Simulated assay, not measured.
Amino acid sequence: MTSTATHSPIAAAAPNAASANPSGLTVRKLEIDLGQGFDRHWYGGDAFLSQYHNALSMSFPVGEQSFIDAVRDCAALLPRTPEHALLHEATAQFIGQEATHRHIHALYNAHLETQGLVNRWQHWATARIAYAKEKGALPIHFLAVTAAYEHLTAVLADYLLRHNDTLDIADPKMQTLWRWHAAEETEHRAVAYDLYQALKGSYRWRIRWYLYAVLVFSVDSTRQTVLNLWHDGTLFKPGTWWSAAKFFWGRNGAVWHCAKPLFAYFRRDFHPDQEAFAAPGQQTRSLAQRWLKEHADSFRVVR
């Protein structure tokens, strides 16, 4: 396997086709109107798929803000030398992208409240962050957690862009929202990790916080989805459970496609941009760039 440094897009300093920024990252404002809301079962009438994705959205405003804070705090510890110039630029663009994600999902979540859904995930996450700060957790630990969650979201983004064709049946504006988010998660998937490496973060703590993130994400996403389905009145319908089983364990289920990249994080020479087995033009980054190019009328470039 190629070494970490070889895989870093920031170290390579090669802007992609979707960005004129030296870091290869672009801050975009999504041009969709959530003011009119969307159907309760916006995912092609499927209660489980709608409420699972709604649960994920509920985590984003608090989660994205914590990622912004972690990257900003740790970037301040990185010397502003020529060798780190692109990484500093990437962190600024990362913060811009995450801020736009936080904003659009706050609007999304506001509509979910009008549908009678209750966002508990934001309170669970807020309490954990406050507890860690109270105990004096160092910025590098928050960054390790951020790198872990960024890998989780990048793996889910890969699944959505590469395999999740069922999204084609969803409300068009929701298709756009989720694929735009997936494309940008793919773009900036290495920033927190590269910053952690540049600050000499340890492998041991990287793995400890990854195990923590996987556990917490799995538990929180499950219980928030169950709560959503409960309030939706569809928790005990057989079709709900059948849909969940197909999504995770079906022939093209998420478990089969996500397991290998999730386990890859344990490698000492891991890097988020490693896609050794993907054919040319089929790497997730290429798929993301292609989607962004084909749907350029869906967003406005900010910087």
Rank of each mutant, 00 (worst) to 15 (best):
W230G: 07
R40L: 01
G96R: 00
T234C: 14
G136H: 00
I95N: 06
F270A: 04
Q197T: 15
G45W: 06
R268L: 08
A213Y: 05
T6L: 03
L117S: 12
W121S: 15
N109S: 05
T240G: 13
A192S: 05
M174Y: 13
W205S: 03
M1F: 10
A147S: 07
I140G: 01
Y131L: 14
T6Y: 09
A12Y: 03
E275I: 00
A12G: 12
D158W: 00
F67W: 13
L211W: 05
T2H: 10
A55S: 12
C74G: 13
W249M: 13
L160T: 06
S243K: 04
L56Y: 04
T166E: 02
I207W: 08
L25F: 15
A90T: 00
A198Y: 07
A99R: 00
G63T: 14
G63N: 14
G63V: 14
A157R: 01
T4A: 05
H7D: 02
Q115M: 15
E294F: 11
A137D: 04
F270Y: 14
V219M: 08
P61Q: 09
A296C: 07
T153L: 08
G233R: 14
S243W: 04
L143V: 10
A190C: 02
H7G: 00
D168E: 12
D273S: 02
T146N: 03
A110Y: 07
V27Q: 00
A55E: 03
D269Y: 02
K135A: 00
A20Q: 12
L56R: 01
W180P: 09
K293L: 12
P280M: 08
T100G: 03
H41L: 06
G44F: 01
R267L: 05
A147N: 04
F67Y: 13
A20I: 15
A198K: 01
Q289L: 10
R72E: 15
L156F: 06
E275R: 05
S66P: 03
A198L: 03
R72Q: 15
A110C: 04
R303V: 05
T26K: 03
R128L: 11
H41T: 07
H103N: 04
A259H: 02
Y212H: 13
I10D: 01
G24S: 08
S50M: 07
L199G: 02
A154K: 04
Y193L: 01
D194Q: 08
T284W: 10
W256I: 02
Y203M: 04
Q122Y: 10
W42V: 03
W256F: 06
F266G: 03
I10V: 08
Q282S: 14
A170K: 06
H151P: 05
M1D: 09
D297F: 11
D168R: 13
E83D: 15
S286D: 15
R268T: 07
R179K: 15
H103Q: 09
E185G: 15
F248A: 09
K293W: 07
A245C: 13
C74M: 11
R162L: 01
Q97D: 06
F236R: 09
T146I: 00
R223P: 09
R285V: 10
L34W: 00
F38R: 11
L160N: 02
W205C: 05
D73E: 15
E184L: 09
A90E: 00
W178I: 08
A47Q: 05
A85T: 11
H88D: 09
H231G: 15
A264W: 01
N21T: 08
K133Y: 06
Y203D: 11
N119H: 11
C258I: 04
T126G: 13
A76K: 10
A99M: 01
